[in-house]
Design a protein around this nucleic acid. Sequence first.
RNA 1: GGAGGGGUGGCUGAGCGGUUGAAAGCAGCAGACUUGAAAUCUGCCAUGGGGCUUGUCCUCAUCAGGAGUUCGAAUCUCCUCCCCUCCGCCA
Length: 483
Amino acid sequence: MIDLRLLRENPGNYKAGAKAKNIPVDIDRILALDEDKRRLLTRIEHLRAEQNKIAKESGPLIGKLSGSLKQATGDEATRIQRELEELKARPAKLKAEISELEPQVAALEPQLQSLLLQVPLPPDADVPVGAGSESNVEIKRWSPPGFQLSKSFEENRGFKPKTHQELVRDLKLADFERGVKLAGTRSYVLTGMGMRLHMALLRYATDFMTDRHGFTPISVPVLVREEAMIGTGFFPAGREQAYHIAETQRRNPDAADDKGVGSHDLYLTGTGEVGLMGLHMNEILDEAQLPLRYVTVSTCFRREAGAAGKDTAGLYRIHQFDKVEQVVICKADEAESRAWHKKMIGFVEEILQSLEIPYRLLQCCTGDLGPKNADMVDIESWMPGRGQPDKDGRPQGDFGETHSASRLYDFQCRRLNMRYRAGAAGGKHETVFCHSLNNTVLASPRFLIPLLENHQQQDGSVRIPAALRPYLNGAEVVRSSVS
RNA sequence: GGAGGGGUGGCUGAGCGGUUGAAAGCAGCAGACUUGAAAUCUGCCAUGGGGCUUGUCCUCAUCAGGAGUUCGAAUCUCCUCCCCUCCGCCA
C-alpha cells in the first residue's frame, strides 16, 4: 500500500512508477474519488459536529425533564411533555441530511480502496528501467576454484553432464510418474536419498541463518486468511497464483438448507514470507525490538497459472515445494533498509559458496520487480543441464533463478498496519510504519537441480559438498537411492 | 459435534444509556531529589482521518467488525468474525 497523502502531493511519481513496472492503474481516478470522498466527509463532519453539540447541550436537560415528568401532573406535565418533544426534534434535520450523504461515501469507499491496493510501489531511481527479465543486469558472478563459467561443463570436468532429470532417474532420487498419478502435472515424489538431500539442504539453510546470523527460527501457518495475503501484497495482483480453500462454500449434506458451514475462506501460501510478515500485523512494536530477523521453513504452494508449457519437466517449476525464507523488519530508514538488503544477499552467497555452486547476481529491472518491491536482486544458480541444446542436442547449461531478494520500504508494513514507536514505548513519540525485506535462503527441490548437476561425477554418482555431510550422516557420495 | 464464557488504550483491567476517548495499575517519556543509580515525588503519555486562519488550532471517527434502536450507545438488539473453558471425537 502506498501513502495516499504522498500520492496526492506527487501523483506523477506514482504514475511514472506504475508505467516503469508496466502495471496499469488509473491514478487520476483515485485522485478524483479521493477528492469526492473528502468533500462529502467534510460536509458530514460539520453536520455531526453540530449534532454532537446539540446532544451535549440538550442531553442532560432531557434527562432532568424526563425525571420531573414522572412527578408532574396536569398542566405542568403537558408543558414538560411539549418541551421534551421540542428538544428531541432539534437534531432531526441534521440526521436526515447525514443519512443522505453517508451512502454516497459508502459507495465511493470500496472503489477507492480497491484501486489503492493496486498502486505499485515506485521502483527506486537506481533500478535500471526495462520491460522484463531480459533487461535485468548481471552485477556479479562467482564460481568455485577449478570451475570456469567461461568454459563448458565438459571442458571443466572432462565429461558431458547429465541433466538433473537423468540423474534423478538413474539414482532413483525422485519419481515423477507416481507424483503425477497422485496429484497431477508438476507433481513429484522424492525417494530415498532424494528426500534425504532435500531435508539436509533445508536443515542446513535453517541452521545457517539461526546459528551463524542470529535469525529466530519460526514456524508459521501456510493456510492463511485473505487479510494476510492482501497485507503482504500478494493479493490482489497475484490472486490467480494462490490455491484457494473455499470453506464458505462448504455445505452440510444433512442440512435442509444449503447454508455454508465454513466460517471463512483460506489460502495456501506461496512463500513463508506471508506467515513471517503477517506475524505482527496490526501491532505497534517498540523500536528497541527492531530489527526483527526471522527465518522459517515452510511448504509453498503455487498454481503456476500462466506458466503452461514452461519448464514442465523435472524439479524446476512445481506446484509444491519447501523453502527456507528470511525476513527482516527494520526501522523506517532507507540506509538501514539498503544495508540489510546487501547483508541478506551476502548470507545467500555464503551458503552457495559453501555448497560450491556457481551463481550470479542479477539486478532486476523495473519491469521485473512486481508491485511491492522498490528493488529486487535475483540470485541464479548454474544449472549444467539447463539451457539451449548444442549441436548434439544436449543442453549447454544456463543460470536458473533460485533466490530473490526484495526491498520493500514500508509498502508491506503499511498494508499490514505494522508500526513501531520511535524512541521508546508509551512516550510521546509518533508511530511509523516499519520497513521490510525478504530473501530466499534455500528452496528445494529446485535447489537439487544445481546441487546434483554441478556435483555429478563421471561415473554417474554425485559428490556431496562438505557443508552438507553432517546432515547426511557423513555421506560423501550419492551412488543410488539408498546411499 | 454439544454446552457455556468472553473480545475495552503498548500490556493488565474497570465501566454496562447522558462531558467516558474511556477509572486504576503496569510499562514508557520528561522533570525534581541524588556524586551517580535505585527508591520516592510531580507532570505527560491511544490510534487514524479531514480542514484551514499551520495553531500550546478546529473537527470527525474508533471500546473485535457490520447493521439497527435512541435526542444521545463502550453500555441495549441483531448478524458476522475471533478467542477461551468443559464434554465428545481425534493425529
